[in-house]
Amino acid sequence: MAAEALTPEAVFNQLNDTFSDYELTYDENVPCIIVPANAIRDVAMQLRDAEEYAFDYLMSLSGVDNGDETLGVVYHLYSFTYKNQLTLKVIVPKEDPKLKSVARIWLTADWHEREAYDLVGMTFEGHPDHRRILMPYDWEGHPLRKDYEVPEFYNGMKVPY
């Protein structure tokens, strides 16, 4: 076991070598690694299981409407072994917001992906229980989208107050 915690940039360089098929990019403003939607499960598996990363703790998974015809999912990871953090991002187009689920890799993601689907409205392929979680099951639309319009009525009840 290496004693040193890797910096996000070092993690990115190593990952880029491992996954030469996928196009990973590094955003140094945040800093975070931007992962293509179809690669996220493989990358996540590698980050959790490989000894040099050991990101065994998913702190948070957030769905974001970027406001420019894309939706994003942000993963904040933490490693109990090295005590370092890493941020991953997946950006998907608004017309076809599909990405692979990581609910089987970190069990935290199960409810968080349901929340992201519920509020922002991306589809997580391979999620074991893809339902709404906070809003009523028969609610229409995804409230945290920037172009969301509050419906007039919900089951005959007036919504705006």
């Binding site: 703790y57 109990f80 069990l107």
Partner: peptide, 12 residues
Amino acid sequence: GVLPPDVGISFG
């Protein structure tokens, strides 16, 4: 209600 440590970490 026993929660093993590794399960706890995986569940966050």
